[in-house]
Nucleic acid binder design. Structure first.
Lengths: 336, 336
DNA sequence: AAAGTATGTGAACACGTGTGCACAGTCCGT
DNA sequence: ACGGACTGTGCACACGTGTTCACATACTTT
């Protein structure tokens, strides 16, 4: 019947005490073997780690986090998991956080249960909370701030104590794009926007209007999109049926791709009759079918900024709020 | 000088003991106020929760998880954070997990540090680990299995004890698509694949070959792509320069979109001269510029299956492995 | 009125780890 | 030879919670 015993069905997690017993040392020694900079005979350290490896031991992060230090957990609230830009953004961010030894917990901000999800995740002592686009209800932001969780918002500035911001220079981007198109000889400008709730669309529109005003011009037409390809397509159809602009600036790339498709379908020659440009420089903008001229909203630089702010905030929790503005760049392809 | 005291700079987390003191009850009562099904006077319960709300108290999930029950943490290993299909998949999955009260920790499998990241995240007592696409090194899979962490793999079957699988019927999908195209009168078939390392590409190719064999035919041409639009574009260029097929089946939608663009650029009439079809039905397949006929690889049903397997595995940890096969559907649009 | 039962609550333990503190042992300088 | 500096290690405490157990109180039954 010893066969029965041979399958211990080890379901319990291996604990430091078991390693200590197996290696003939105290539990403290095991703990020290896994903490850098702790006093421990180096030969003993390797022996302990060897035993730990054989037993499959890993320090329990829950117990360690309880200890008072950092938990290494970072929540990411992402407003729209469908948007190509946001998903690409989150992809980069996750990679960087992983490399830093931080663990990103994702919260889908588009779901109906987003508020309760945020509320519940606060049961974990988070190192930080990162907001990507979308809008987290203000009372939740305040609650996080009250609890003392560092927050970093990207894509929509949040003016609350304890919240750092990373934002791209939206107006600068569309302003220089508009100036470029004016210099190129374009005269009749139109804009496809996004709902007012999207902060960045308004900013981008401002840039266009400012550059036009500087040149003594103004928008000849305007339509409402919704940051999606379908929305851009519909808005493009409506706009190009009623007006004949020679430059169409869109609130983002998805909108521009939709509008570009609509224009081609209606028989417009791009870029001969009309320039159509977007904002963001998502992967699809580069696809040969679109070859979209656009304003780059640099993901890598924004993520760098987030990581930088995160490190600074963890270093000095009481520091004053910061806002890092990320520069845009014109990406000149085939639609201007 | 009382002003000085009024700003306590409360940085420490509120603990159950503080709530107990403030409410004039024992700490146990506070704990019970937050656990469903615990004996506690209902009037007292609401009073405690009221005090907790005012103080901003939330039970510390780290300490609670230490208690022995579930940790509610679920790791998601995602092979490629750039792929539109995978990111959409993860988006859905995150939403569903949030609604279930599980917290998804993301691991970027494409980074160089992916292995150590997986190793490190195992310090948390995870409820489960979900693999989406990509390939997690086998030794890590075995390590997870040894520790006893339930694993669910999606997109690439893993035949290891303790690993459940969700997989779409790749071969069935391309087989019925091929049969459909044959019935439609197409005769000369070509295929653009992905590297052999991608399990699903091989399966999809098999479906094509089987359907052709059934009709007494075989592939007339074949090129290697890499599951990306650029790869599909290049492969399409090469293939269509040297052959004149009337049906081109691609390993996934991104490849098909690239090939479609190449075909149009070379002056091919789609679908009159050639049918070009993909696999997955990503958002972009629906975009008006592509209007791609494809095989739907249903994300919602796959995610449903994952959630189902997760629940069953948590219910009965010792149950035998399961494999759920997800049915595909033809999506007939404009490129056939 | 006594005995039994239902209800509510506090004390104490367990979870697994990091670390301050005290102590043992070794090496060096005078 | 002796005191001091240095190195290495175990003990014990703290972290914040869920839960068992015993106990106190109120209520019902014979």
């Amino acid at each position: 019947m010893s066969d029965f015993d041979e399958k211990p069905e080890q379901k319990k997690r291996v604990t430091a005490q078991m390693v200590a017993d197996a290696a003939g040392v105290s539990r403290s020694a095991v703990s020290r073997a896994f903490t850098d900079g702790a006093y421990l005979d180096s030969e003993k350290r390797v022996r302990i780690r060897q035993v730990a490896l054989e037993l499959g031991y890993q320090p329990n992060a829950l117990a360690a986090g309880l200890q008072g230090g950092r938990s290494h957990l970072v929540a990411i609230f992402v407003g729209n998991m469908r948007s190509p830009y946001d998903t690409a953004f989150v992809g980069h961010l996750v990679g960087r956080l992983n490399a830093l030894g931080k663990w990103p917990i994702l919260i889908d901000g588009s779901g109906a249960q987003a508020s309760t999800a945020v509320e519940d995740v606060l049961r974990y002592p988070l190192d930080a909370m990162i907001l990507r686009g979308g809008s987290m209800p203000e009372d939740l932001v305040l609650q996080c701030a009250k609890i003392g969780i560092p927050m970093i918002s990207s894509g929509r500035p949040v003016d609350i104590d304890g919240v750092d911001n990373v934002c791209c220079r939206n107006a600068d981007g569309t302003r220089s794009m508009t100036e470029f198109l004016i210099a190129q000889g374009r005269k009749k400008f139109a804009y496809i926007s996004a709902p007012r709730a999207y902060y960045s669309s308004t900013q981008r529109r401002n840039g266009v209007v400012q550059a036009l005003a500087q040149a003594g011009r103004e928008l000849m037409a305007e339509e409402d999109g919704d940051f999606t390809v379908d929305g851009g397509f519909d808005a493009g159809m409506r706009l190009l049926s009623n007006h004949r602009p020679d430059a169409l600036i869109c609130a983002n790339d998805a909108t521009a791709i939709g509008a570009l498709t609509a224009a081609k379908e209606m028989g417009w020659q791009v870029p001969d009759q009309i320039a159509i440009v977007g904002f963001d420089d998502i992967d699809m903008a580069r696809w040969p079918s679109f070859d979209l001229t656009t304003v780059m909203n640099p993901i890598d630089r924004s993520v760098d900024a987030i990581i930088e702010l995160l490190n600074r905030r963890l270093e000095t929790p009481e520091k004053s709020n910061e806002m890092i503005l990320v520069k845009t760049e014109l990406v000149l392809r085939g639609t201007h």
